[in-house]
């Protein structure tokens, strides 16, 4: 069983290494991820929000819905832990 798992892992890894050929090179300034929407964020963030930290601006302002529901997920996880572990306690 463990041998089978090892074989499956190695085969999946080999397949992924073969597929990694198509990824952009490390540190390439012209990779697709840094061409599509990020120049807009970098050039316009300070002008539009006066926040020097672009990460905060994108997190809280441009992608506010994303962060709102991430916060809701954290809240739901905490409440789930409370309910699961408090449910059948004897004190």
């Amino acid at each position: 069983m463990k041998i089978l798992a090892l074989i499956v892992s190695i085969m999946t890894g080999a397949l992924l290494i073969y597929a990694a050929e198509d990824f952009p090179s490390w540190g390439d300034p012209n990779s697709p991820t840094s061409l599509h929407v990020s120049p807009r964020y970098i050039t316009k963030t300070y002008e539009e929000t006066k926040i020097p930290n672009m990460v905060t601006a994108v997190l809280a302002d441009y992608r506010g819905y994303d962060t709102l529901f991430e916060t809701t997920v954290i809240f739901a996880a905490g409440i789930t832990v409370l309910f699961l572990l408090r449910g059948n306690r004897d004190d």
């Binding site: 300034p29 991820t33 840094s34 929407v37 990020s38 120049p39 964020y41 970098i42 050039t43 300070y46 672009m54 990460v55 994108v58 997190l59 992608r63 994303d66 962060t67 991430e70």
Partner: peptide
Amino acid sequence: IANPALYLNPLPHVLMLT
């Protein structure tokens, strides 16, 4: 700030922070 090549891409940082 007008040259995007001088700053790292902020978007993956945002997504991974959450």
